[in-house]
Design a protein around this nucleic acid. Sequence first.
DNA 1: CCGATGGTAGACAGATCTGTCTGGTAATGT
DNA 2: ACATTACCAGACAGATCTGTCTACCATCGG
Lengths: 200, 200
Amino acid sequence: MATTETTERRRAESPARRRAESPARRRILDTAGALFYAEGIHTVGIDRVIAEAGVAKATFYHHFPSKDELVRAYVQEQSDRVHATTVVRGDTPQERILSVFDDLGDFICGPGFRGCAFVNAAAEYPDPDHPVRRVVAEHRAWFHGILRDLLTEAGRSEADADRTATMLTMLRDGLVVAGDLDDPAATRALAREAVTRLLA
Amino acid sequence: MATTETTERRRAESPARRRAESPARRRILDTAGALFYAEGIHTVGIDRVIAEAGVAKATFYHHFPSKDELVRAYVQEQSDRVHATTVVRGDTPQERILSVFDDLGDFICGPGFRGCAFVNAAAEYPDPDHPVRRVVAEHRAWFHGILRDLLTEAGRSEADADRTATMLTMLRDGLVVAGDLDDPAATRALAREAVTRLLA
DNA sequence: CCGATGGTAGACAGATCTGTCTGGTAATGT
DNA sequence: ACATTACCAGACAGATCTGTCTACCATCGG
């Protein structure tokens, strides 16, 4: 092994990423995340991101080859964050499914909620082959998979679990959209009942 | 009455609108509608709209004071079009509700489908007080009202009709989102069953 | 005949966008 | 001691954006 200790440690810290974390990169990603989510992607320029991140322009282009790549990283990080914070609770499969939607209900009622980052990003990137859309598709497949597994656990057939998981994923989309466009609290209040009905 | 006959006729043709239809305005609106829906709003510039509509720049600004106003008119027209083309069919209330979602299923499988124009527009206009968002909110209230009335017709209590209508509206949102981000045909295939379960 | 209206064509201003480039500083591993 | 790396500051180019303005043409009611 000819690689240095630091390189080793870097690789160990973030095995999936080639480039290691750096404070500047972190600041860029945090700032971009907040701005893109709150105000939309195309409305927020690079100049704005680097200004609010307190970073030089050259530094930005050192870490990201283009704005598109930053957007991709933003969506990817949203997905990573959801993965990391999703904790399925409950004893029975039904309770575990409900817990997922309970968290979703809290999410849409939380401060600064502005719709689903994935749905919103997809709205600004129509091309289905765009990297951003691919990340969104992956995230949706992941969410669907969680529900499908829980439904299989609950004793449903593979086909039924798949179909019901798809319906629950649609409900998820409906919740985040309605939470943004209508009353979040009223939306949350109906989540459990909607899930229960779809599970019937 | 001192007004001329033509002015009278114009007012009679479009009572809600102050300005009468003109070929140029119609072309602008059609072009903008196609471009905004297919490619997103902020990505499509005014220059592009006037070029593809075959209209002079001064003509555009003669009919619309700003791009924002064009966007508002675009969303409004989408809403008007849905109002005009929505036909509720069926003998029983349940069948009538299902027919609404059948049409929705056909819509998401149709050529050029690119998600919900209202959801996509809202994603690009975060401010809830923005005119665009107001039109979106009105449209959603209209859709919710149709379902609520059908459910009341079906003999449900006012509270139940309202709650169930909200759940069905969420399903609608889920359908158009999933139709765009996942497989449209597979999504449509589950619409009826999801409605039926939510009606239980 | 005349004035209002709606239209075309296109230059222009001023802002803003992405991305490049130069030049300098500070830390750090070898 | 030195080379590399990460970072900052900011000018710059080239494109594109919204919106204004001038100049001209056609139609049509009065």
